[in-house]
């Protein structure tokens, strides 16, 4: 049974369509990430799942239980959903402990205590149970929010941009920590972000949203390696577009010369495409007789980003060696699984 099934969901606000025809499925114990720029409708979808927004049409099923269909809307308090908000939404007038037992206060006192203790242990906050939210750091507050949601034993966990208020220094560490907590607790989760780094680090499955629709769903590497549209390709990390003509199943011709594919691309011969090449797939060699001139260099530590001008086009390359501006270089494309898009009509 799937943890969450969203089928043909439409959502509008003030007469404007926010979500159109969205469908996506989430398996048990899986973490789905909704990725997109602001205004793409990702938070709206999250709220629709939570029951905080009405649907125009479509159906939502959580753990086999239909929560939304035509003419039916289960109120949020009956959905068994744990939600982590961007601002954590901790109740400022209650201690950590009171916050955690808020959702389970109908259980016997004893059970409340044991369950609260369990989840606080899980998030490593046992010794903070008597503190108030404003006495905790941002990361601690977030873990309280998670503990509160987990104590409620939700069928599904929703996280709305949970890491945007966390210092970038500790963000990745925290993401790993929370991913582990969720996995340990065995909860399925839907998570919203606009940052691909967070998405890659956190998600099992990725859905890229654009203007109220889902563009592509898949595992992070699938989407990175085989983007279905230019939008997905760009969103998951920029690159260089250049014209390409197919030579055979494994080769295309480009202004940078012949490029070799590691897998067959199934495009018909002699047709023209745009090839999308990621910066790290271009290699540079210093060559005074080379065709390109280095226009700018950005030092990144382990590697450098080098911008090379060649025949009116500027190429973005990421290489391990060091180059200086005005240096003359040669460009070559490493063999890889090629990404070819249809020519854009002008």
């Amino acid at each position: 049974m799937s943890a969450l099934v969203i089928s043909n969901v439409h959502c509008s606000y003030n007469g404007l369509d926010i979500l159109s025809d969205m469908s996506v499925t989430l398996e048990d114990n899986e973490i789905l990430c909704l990725l997109g720029s602001s205004g793409c409708g990702k938070t709206t979808l999250l709220k629709a799942i939570a029951g905080l927004l009405p649907l125009k049409s479509g159906e939502i099923t959580i753990n086999g239980k239909v929560v939304n269909k035509t003419g039916f809307h289960l109120p949020p308090e009956q959905r068994k959903i744990g939600m982590i908000f961007q601002d954590y939404a901790l109740f400022p007038h209650m201690t950590v402990m009171d916050n955690v037992v808020f959702g389970i206060d109908e259980l016997p006192k004893k059970e409340q205590q044991t369950r609260a203790q369990q989840v606080l242990d899980l998030v490593n906050l046992s010794e903070f149970s008597e503190r108030y939210p404003h006495q905790l750091s941002g990361g601690q507050q977030q873990r309280v929010a998670i503990a509160r949601a987990l104590a409620y034993q939700p069928d599904l966990m929703l996280l709305d941009e949970p890491f945007s208020n966390i210092d970038s220094q500790v963000r990745l560490k925290l993401i790993a920590e929370i991913r582990q907590i969720l996995k340990k607790a065995g909860v399925s989760a839907v998570f919203v972000t606009h940052s691909k780094e967070e998405a890659f680090a956190f998600a099992d499955k990725l859905a890229v949203l654009d203007q109220g629709s889902i563009v592509q769903v898949g595992t992070p590497d699938e989407l990175y390696l085989r983007p279905a549209t230019r939008f997905v390709a760009d969103f998951l990390g920029g690159g260089n577009y250049l014209p390409a003509t197919v030579i055979d199943e494994h080769h295309v011709n480009t202004p940078l010369g012949r490029v070799c594919s590691t897998v067959a691309h199934h495009k018909s011969d002699a047709t023209s495409y745009d090839i999308f090449i990621r910066p790290q797939q271009i290699s540079l060699t210093a060559n005074d007789a080379g065709a390109g001139v280095v226009s700018d260099v950005q030092f990144l530590g382990a590697s450098s980003k080098v911008y090379v001008k060649l025949a009116q086009q500027e190429f973005e390359c990421q290489v391990a060696q060091h180059f200086t501006t005005q240096q003359v270089v040669d460009l070559a494309v490493e063999p890889h699984e090629l990404i070819l898009f249809d020519k854009q009509s002008a």
Binding site: A50, L52, P75, P76, E77, Q78, R79, K80, I81, G82, M83, F85, Q86, D87, A89, F91, P92, H93, F102, G103, R148, A149, Y152
Partner: peptide, 24 residues
């Protein structure tokens, strides 16, 4: 989000009012 949290944690709007909105 406070009210929404309370609701998602199983409280009716009225309960959320008494326990969250009013004390705050």
């Amino acid at each position: 989000t406070l009210m929404q949290s309370a609701q998602l944690l199983g409280k009716t709007p009225l309960q959320a009012f008494w326990r969250i909105s009013l004390p705050l």
